[in-house]
Design a protein around this nucleic acid. Structure first.
Length: 125
DNA sequence: CTGATGACGGTGC
DNA sequence: GGCACCGCCATCA
């Protein structure tokens, strides 16, 4: 387990787990972080500072598209990075979550961060 | 302390 | 499929 941390830090730890070539949604991330909501996750991404090693570009909305924003180079740069990582966009600029969606953190990680797995089962997964 | 503010999501039409 | 609402809650001024 890990000492209590700012909720943003926990979100960042989770985002760091998303491997290149995969994407996670704001809602998906929020389901693993108690006290967070999709909006909080979005807010956390907006607060990411360059150089922290947080792959913020791999977090997109539930519809599989990049939400317009102006942080860290903007949504345009975000798309470039994702394409470079092998993510494919369709004609409408959307990503197929079936193909590129992240499976979620492994049980070991959940345990280390003291996440209540049963709490997750009730919500989804 | 109080109010405003979001890189969102689900529901209903 | 698209669009308008409402709920959400940590942060910040």
């Amino acid at each position: 387990m890990v000492p209590p941390r700012a909720i943003f830090d926990l979100i960042y730890d989770l985002v760091i787990l998303v491997p290149a070539g995969n994407v996670a949604t704001y809602g998906q991330i929020s389901r693993y972080v108690a006290g967070s909501t999709p909006r909080i996750v979005g807010f956390a991404m907006a607060g990411v500072k360059p150089g922290l090693g947080v792959p913020w570009q791999r977090v997109i909305n539930a519809r599989g598209e990049i939400s317009p924003h102006g942080g860290a180079g903007g949504s345009g740069l975000q798309r470039e990075i994702l394409e470079a990582e092998g993510i494919a966009f369709d004609a409408r600029g959307r990503i197929d979550l079936k193909r590129f969606g992240w499976a979620g953190p492994d049980d070991d990680w959940l345990k280390r961060h003291d996440i209540d797995v049963e709490h997750l089962m009730g919500k989804d997964r």
